[in-house]
């Protein structure tokens, strides 16, 4: 469905993406994970026919994005990162307009259907300019779904949504991804883990890792790091924690909390909790610490310089 080989894009002297190679099959949700400025949006813009690459080739839905751009655009649904919309239009009219451009038969019925799917039926006659960020995001998603595209490209689809909406949108994407190809970008690791079958990690215009979500998880969580906090003074806390077998890398933080690690698969948290309580402390918090994107890159690129 998507096949990218040697894709390179320069903006003047700056190289935005460098020699990207990846593919995505039908019924697969592929996540594009990377920090801002990594080249996610640039790649997506090339795949949607918005801009041509400097070098390399991209085939989307069986057509070349440069040579057969119109054919590609007919088959791709795209939600740009900024969610551009005609704010002076009514939601229904806007979707009908975009549907007309794609020659959708019975376009008005389709608009109703799509609005229902993104849960905006009650705002069909409202002006887009009056909608909240979350609702606009859903209008953008509705627009991308209008023509039942074979390939759906979503640039940061959950950014700016409130937690409830994030869950809804992810659910919707997962459902769509069952029969179509979805490529979505995100800078949230847990989002990629949550909805994607496969994750491409991109940094500074290069793919640094590509793997299924499970494998990636296993690779990342060589060791899990946990934070522990007790009520009151806890000078001896670190010493207490160290007594438990399997605990590594104990550190006392400035705020009095203690961080420690354990090897993946050997969860020692119950033992640590017992030990802490038996030693007379009031345990108030014990939680896993997620990895930041920076740490992930360091981990995946095999850099051994531990920055903290």
């Amino acid at each position: 469905m998507i096949k990218v080989s040697g894709l390179t894009k320069d903006y003047g002297a700056r190289r935005a993406i460098h020699n990207l190679n990846f593919d995505a099959q039908q019924g697969e949700i592929v996540g594009f994970l990377g920090p801002n400025g990594a080249g996610k949006t640039t790649t997506m813009r090339i795949l949607t026919g918005y801009m041509p690459p400097t070098d390399g080739e991209a085939i989307v839905a069986g057509y070349d994005v440069v040579e057969e751009s119109l054919e590609v655009r007919k088959r791709v649904g795209y939600l740009p990162e900024t969610v551009p919309l005609y704010t002076d239009m009514v939601v229904f009219d806007y979707l009908k307009f975009m549907g007309d451009l794609r020659r959708i038969p019975n376009v008005e019925d389709r608009v109703d259907e799509v609005l229902d799917r993104v849960g905006l039926s009650d705002r069909a006659n409202g002006y887009i300019g009056n909608l909240s960020k979350g609702m606009r995001q859903r209008v953008g998603l509705a627009q991308a779904l209008m023509h039942r595209p074979e390939v759906l490209i979503l640039d940061e689809p959950t950014i700016g949504l409130d937690p409830g909406q994030v869950v809804e949108v992810r659910e919707l994407i997962r459902e769509i991804g069952k029969e179509r190809t979805v490529l979505l970008s995100t800078h949230l690791l847990n989002e990629a883990q949550n909805i994607c079958d496969r994750v491409l990690i991109i940094n500074k215009g290069k793919i640094v890792a590509e793997d299924t979500t499970e494998n990636l998880q296993a690779r990342l969580i060589g060791a899990e790091r946990v934070m522990l906090r007790v009520r009151g003074e806890a000078d001896e806390l670190a010493k207490t924690v160290k007594l438990v077998k399997g605990v590594q890398g104990v550190e006392t933080k400035e705020d009095g909390s203690v961080e420690f690690e354990f090897a993946s698969g050997k969860d020692v948290r119950p033992e640590v909790a017992k030990q802490v309580i038996n030693s007379g402390y009031d345990l108030i918090e014990l939680r896993p610490l997620g990895m930041s994107l920076e740490e992930i890159f360091l981990e995946l690129t095999g850099s051994d310089s531990k920055k903290k």
């Binding site: 813009r45 918005y50 054919e71 740009p80 551009p84 005609y86 975009m98 451009l101």
Partner: peptide
């Protein structure tokens, strides 16, 4: 300016 050009340029419109 509004970015909607991106929509037009990724729709199947010459």
């Amino acid at each position: 300016r509004m970015g909607t050009l991106e929509l037009m340029l990724t729709a199947p419109v010459r």
